[in-house]
């Protein structure tokens, strides 16, 4: 059986036995992997801290035979993202990226888009002030929607390709994008959103990550972007409510408000 080598970011690590862990990884060359790391829980483990969540490591592994788990042979860390682990709120945002990747990356998909999106966003978060994390999370969500095949259509009408002119703009969760005046009756559950919200979402969808921090968003538009992305998530995947990192973020902001 050949040994495979790749770079990967650890999304999650579970205790499997007294001495071993099961890790979920987002790899550059083989998509999402689930692998057993034998001996990872031993004090002098050869894996050391390379398999902690939110760590970029180079890994060597034996691929699974059929339906089982891959087996990790070696790992050496490339980036531990230490700055993201020094503050609870930063860790919660970084964890949300990992959870989103885990849920939105289909098993067996070998593309590297998810890996690069996660890698770039974690790197950018390390260099960014906490105020920018929310925007980086939304930018990442929009990228991951595309990876998962849910990319919202924000430029032309999702039904006919026409240009939406009404104010506010109609947004269809079911169709996955904005609707023009002619087509808006096709979805009775459509949502009305401010045109600036659509403009900002469009910008977040197309802008390079380096420029995300420069986008200015008013608190009312922030609320609308958050609400529409959440609704979009909820409509297309059951997993949204399972995102525990976002629950912790809500807990932190609630405590900060009291």
């Amino acid at each position: 059986m050949p040994i495979l080598k790749t770079e990967a970011i650890v999304l999650r690590s579970y205790k499997w036995s007294e001495t071993s862990n099961i890790v979920t990884l987002c790899s550059r060359d083989f998509g999402k992997l689930r692998a057993v790391a034998k001996g990872a829980r031993r004090p002098n483990s050869r894996f050391d801290n390379c398999l902690n969540p939110i760590t970029q490591s180079q890994i060597l592994f034996y691929p699974r035979k059929s339906g089982g788990l891959d087996v990790l042979k070696e790992a050496s860390s490339i980036n531990y993202f230490p700055d993201l682990k020094q503050e609870l709120e930063k860790l919660a945002y970084a964890s949300a990226l990992c959870e989103l990747t885990e849920y939105l990356t289909p098993d067996g998909q070998t593309g590297s888009s998810a890996y690069y999106a996660l890698h770039q966003t974690l790197n950018k978060m390390e260099d960014s002030p906490l105020e920018d994390f929310k925007k980086l999370l939304w930018h990442f969500e929009l990228r991951m929607f595309a990876v998962a095949g849910y990319r919202p259509q924000l430029c032309e009408c999702v039904c006919c390709g026409g240009s939406p002119k009404s104010l506010p703009v109609s947004f269809s969760l079911a169709q996955g994008g904005v609707l023009c005046e002619k087509c808006e009756q096709k979805d009775a559950a459509r949502r009305q959103v401010h045109p600036d919200t659509v403009k900002l979402l469009r910008m977040l969808q197309s802008i390079e990550i380096e420029k995300v921090g420069k986008i200015q968003i008013s608190p009312s538009l922030e609320r609308e972007i958050k609400a529409i992305l959440e609704a979009f998530w909820r409509y297309h995947t059951e997993e949204y409510r399972k995102l525990k990192s976002l629950q912790v973020l809500r807990q932190i902001s609630r405590n900060a408000g009291t």
């Binding site: 999650r12 964890s95 990992c98 912790v248």
Partner: peptide, 11 residues
Amino acid sequence: VLSPLDGIGPD
């Protein structure tokens, strides 16, 4: 421990 991945926050 505080672990956002497991939904464990300060509360």
